[in-house]
């Protein structure tokens, strides 16, 4: 998890079933990027890393962004990742991650204004704090801006 302002760029590389969530307050110019691995904390009892799980990472990031001067009612979110990398895998971690991220953002009252999720390929997410642009890079596809 990282929070920046100014014209910094945040990057999270090669999201597979993980989900990257970029939350931006354009007025304060504050941007946060979270990269979660699993939907719920209770899948790993005893694991204290709150940034790893959708149900603990996002609220933590939002409260840290507020400490930097961002305001929830001005925040919006862009999400990417949550792919199903291996066709035969029955545990749909990517899908569950996306669902949990969406429901957390909804609970926090943050609107999703861009998303590139699901399918079966990896994504690198490049987020620009200057204007809130998020670029999605993949191996075989052209760059997408969300």
């Amino acid at each position: 998890m990282k929070i920046v302002s100014g014209d910094n760029i945040l990057i999270t590389y090669a999201l597979g079933s993980c989900v990257g969530t970029c939350i931006y307050d354009g007025v304060a110019g504050i941007m946060g990027l979270s990269h979660i691995l699993l939907p719920e904390k209770n899948l790993c009892p005893g694991d204290t890393n709150v940034y790893k799980f959708a149900d603990s990472a996002l609220s933590k990031m939002v409260s840290e962004m507020k400490a930097y001067g961002a305001s929830v009612h001005r925040m919006n979110a862009k999400i990417a990742g949550g792919a199903h990398m291996f066709a035969s895998s029955t545990i749909k971690i990517g899908e569950r991650n996306v669902q949990m991220v969406k429901s957390e953002l909804n609970r926090l009252g943050i609107r999703i204004i861009g998303s590139d999720v699901g399918n079966n390929y990896g994504r690198t997410m490049e987020c620009h704090a200057a204007d809130g642009r998020v670029l999605i890079k993949t191996v075989n596809r052209s760059i997408v801006t969300i």
Binding site: A14, L38, C44, I93
Partner: peptide, 17 residues
């Protein structure tokens, strides 16, 4: 799966996790 190493590792990472 043929893709970026990080994306390929996400499934075992989640399982290891």
């Amino acid at each position: 799966a043929a893709d970026m190493a990080g994306a390929i590792m996400s499934l075992p990472a989640a399982m290891f996790g």
